[in-house]
Computed example of a mutant assay.
Amino acid sequence: MELERYIKDILGNHFTLADVPKEALALLPLYIKEEYHISQGEFWGYPVILMALKQDLDFHTQRTEKHLQTIADIFQRKVVLVMEEMQSYTRRRLIEKKINFIVPGKQLFLPELLIDLRERFSRNYGNKTDTLIPSAQQLFLYYMLHRHSKIQLTDLTLKEIAKKFNYTPTAISMAAENLKKFDLCDIKGSKEKNIVFKEDRPALWHMAQKHLVTPVLKEVFIDKIPDKRVLASNVSALPEYSDMNPGAQQYYAIEKKHYYHLRAAGALVNENPDEGQICLEVWKYDPYVLTYGITEDSNVDPLSLFLSLKDNEDERIEMALDQIIEKFIW
């Protein structure tokens, strides 16, 4: 597809494109579906809706601006207008109004998105050069947790790891290079490459501490568990790994892509940023991958749990986290 190829030529593999689920498209007014092709994408993991004007229709800035807002309100995402051709005066109007647009092969203008990305990276990653990217952290934690597995992560090629973790081979290569950058592993082999961790697990954990970050991207509140693809997290998960009792607030973790899919489909009951029966943690990586053979109670893994709570100053939680490290690291 020309649009995807054009964006990837500029941004590399930091962009993905996918169809919008049918149940989500059903939420749109008929006139929107008649005038635009709607798809969804991610820039650096940040979800957007792409609204492509059908070629045989006239363009009117004011009307299109209202349509953009309608779609943004329904999906609760930034929207990017896509046009095959654009007159110079139309381009000027869109730039003046700071409306996101792409003309494949010619121009990419994303003022809203770039501002949000800057704020998001600043908030979640601090100095990005000092922290592991999410995929690299996920690989590292898997290695730390699954010390007793018959097949170790180091026994697998990068291609096999990509399949196991549901990443592209390119993404896993980037993750491996990120681990190597911080001297946590070496990459061996020529045609088929493997990750080789340099130290024993306690030493690795100590070395990695300044590079590990919380897996939680954000928190929202809802009143009903959306489906089975969530795991108990935060203080709701601590009882399995420590002596701490669960708190009154229920916490669950969900992978970010699945969260945005459910959100677009309207499957999150009474979602809001302040209160609800359930606090839903949106994670940067899939929490399920790390839990096989680790949890017996559908909880997130203990090391990601540790990272999500390590800055909490509650003494009970600090004691619980000490128990996790004693059990799973030393």
Rank of each mutant, 00 (worst) to 15 (best):
H206M: 03
H206K: 10
H206V: 06
H206A: 11
H206R: 12
A208L: 09
Q209C: 01
Q209W: 01
K210Q: 11
H211Q: 07
L212T: 10
L212H: 03
L212E: 04
V213D: 03
T214C: 05
P215T: 10
P215M: 13
V216W: 03
V216R: 06
V216E: 09
L217Q: 04
L217T: 05
L217C: 00
K218N: 03
K218Q: 06
K218R: 08
E219Q: 10
V220K: 12
V220G: 09
V220N: 10
F221E: 07
I222V: 09
I222M: 00
I222A: 02
D223R: 11
K224R: 13
P226I: 05
P226D: 08
P226H: 10
D227Y: 10
D227Q: 08
D227G: 09
D227K: 06
K228Q: 05
R229Y: 09
V230C: 06
L231G: 10
L231C: 04
A232Y: 07
A232S: 02
A232F: 09
S233I: 04
N234R: 08
N234H: 15
N234A: 13
V235W: 04
V235P: 01
V235G: 00
S236F: 02
S236Y: 04
A237D: 10
A237T: 07
A237L: 03
A237R: 06
A237C: 13
A237P: 11
L238E: 13
L238P: 10
L238S: 15
P239Y: 07
E240G: 03
E240K: 08
E240R: 03
Y241F: 15
S242L: 08
S242T: 11
S242G: 09
D243M: 06
M244S: 07
M244N: 03
M244K: 04
M244T: 09
M244Q: 06
N245L: 08
N245T: 12
P246I: 08
P246W: 07
P246K: 07
G247H: 13
G247V: 14
G247D: 14
A248F: 14
A248Q: 06
A248R: 12
Q249Y: 11
Q249R: 13
Q250W: 09
Y251E: 09
Y251P: 06
Y251I: 05
Y252W: 13
Y252T: 14
Y252I: 15
I254K: 03
I254H: 03
E255Q: 14
E255H: 15
K256T: 14
K256I: 02
K256W: 02
K256M: 02
K257H: 12
K257Y: 10
K257E: 14
K257W: 01
H258G: 02
Y259I: 05
Y259G: 02
Y259W: 02
Y260C: 00
Y260S: 00
H261Q: 13
L262H: 01
L262D: 01
L262M: 15
R263A: 09
R263H: 08
A265L: 13
G266V: 05
L268R: 07
V269G: 01
V269C: 01
V269W: 11
V269E: 15
E271L: 15
